[in-house]
Amino acid sequence: MNVEHEVKLLVEEIQRLGSKNTDGQVSVKFGVLFHDDRCANIFEALVGTLKAAKRKKVISFQGELLLQGVHDDVDITLLQE
């Protein structure tokens, strides 16, 4: 798995599904990303890709790990485009 490529695809999907917040940054709810059919086909391990992107400071979100259902309303904010 090419992590750089996966993170690049994640950025594209956040831009596609997200909207600008009050700070002018693009953000999307985890549930929207998780339940999107296109994302489901692209990412085998969405949570792993999110963790890798957070480590690289490409995105930010509250907490360490996002779980479907429990964290559906957590915002994922794009820090780099």
Results as ranks from 00 to 15, higher is better:
residue 67 L to P: 00
residue 11 V to G: 04
residue 42 I to W: 01
residue 73 D to P: 03
residue 46 L to T: 08
residue 56 K to C: 05
residue 51 K to N: 05
residue 20 K to I: 10
residue 17 L to K: 07
residue 5 H to Y: 09
residue 27 S to Q: 14
residue 70 V to H: 02
residue 80 Q to M: 13
residue 10 L to Y: 05
residue 17 L to V: 10
residue 17 L to P: 06
residue 20 K to E: 14
residue 16 R to M: 13
residue 63 G to W: 03
residue 66 L to V: 04
residue 4 E to R: 15
residue 33 L to F: 12
residue 80 Q to A: 14
residue 65 L to N: 09
residue 24 G to P: 09
residue 65 L to T: 15
residue 21 N to W: 04
residue 24 G to F: 12
residue 78 L to N: 11
residue 3 V to E: 15
residue 72 D to Y: 00
residue 32 V to E: 11
residue 30 F to I: 13
residue 48 G to R: 12
residue 63 G to K: 05
residue 29 K to R: 14
residue 57 K to T: 07
residue 26 V to Q: 07
residue 40 A to G: 06
residue 56 K to V: 03
residue 11 V to I: 15
residue 19 S to A: 13
residue 43 F to R: 13
residue 28 V to N: 04
residue 46 L to S: 07
residue 24 G to K: 10
residue 38 R to W: 09
residue 59 I to N: 08
residue 35 H to F: 01
residue 55 R to M: 06
residue 53 A to Y: 01
residue 48 G to I: 11
residue 77 T to M: 03
residue 11 V to D: 03
residue 12 E to P: 02
residue 58 V to K: 14
residue 41 N to Q: 01
residue 2 N to I: 06
residue 19 S to M: 09
residue 18 G to Q: 09
residue 35 H to D: 06
residue 8 K to M: 07
residue 30 F to D: 13
residue 26 V to I: 15
residue 65 L to Y: 08
residue 10 L to D: 05
residue 49 T to Q: 02
residue 10 L to C: 08
residue 28 V to R: 03
residue 68 Q to R: 08
residue 5 H to I: 08
residue 13 E to K: 15
residue 42 I to Q: 02
residue 74 V to H: 08
residue 9 L to V: 04
residue 6 E to H: 09
residue 66 L to M: 02
residue 52 A to L: 12
residue 38 R to H: 12
residue 34 F to T: 02
residue 63 G to A: 07
residue 48 G to M: 11
residue 33 L to Y: 12
residue 36 D to V: 05
residue 72 D to Q: 02
residue 14 I to A: 06
residue 49 T to V: 15
residue 75 D to Q: 09
residue 37 D to Q: 12
residue 81 E to G: 12
residue 8 K to T: 08
residue 67 L to R: 15
residue 11 V to L: 03
residue 21 N to I: 07
residue 20 K to C: 07
residue 43 F to I: 12
residue 25 Q to P: 00
residue 41 N to I: 00
residue 51 K to R: 14
residue 52 A to V: 11
residue 26 V to C: 14
residue 73 D to Y: 00
residue 59 I to R: 09
residue 51 K to P: 01
residue 42 I to E: 04
residue 23 D to V: 01
residue 10 L to V: 08
residue 63 G to Q: 04
residue 77 T to P: 01
residue 61 F to M: 13
residue 9 L to G: 06
residue 26 V to M: 15
residue 74 V to N: 10
residue 39 C to P: 01
residue 51 K to M: 14
residue 12 E to H: 10
residue 5 H to C: 04
residue 70 V to K: 12
residue 71 H to P: 02
residue 79 L to H: 07
residue 7 V to K: 14
residue 16 R to A: 15
residue 33 L to T: 10
residue 46 L to Y: 02
residue 35 H to Y: 04
residue 44 E to A: 05
residue 64 E to I: 09
residue 24 G to E: 11
residue 6 E to F: 03
residue 25 Q to L: 03
residue 1 M to T: 04
residue 62 Q to W: 13
residue 56 K to W: 00
residue 4 E to H: 11
residue 81 E to D: 13
residue 60 S to I: 07
residue 54 K to T: 08
residue 45 A to Y: 07
residue 49 T to H: 01
residue 32 V to Q: 08
residue 47 V to F: 04
residue 22 T to G: 09
residue 73 D to G: 03
residue 10 L to W: 04
residue 43 F to P: 11
residue 46 L to W: 03
residue 5 H to N: 09
residue 56 K to P: 01
residue 45 A to N: 15
residue 19 S to Y: 09
residue 65 L to D: 10
residue 71 H to F: 00
residue 47 V to N: 13
residue 17 L to A: 10
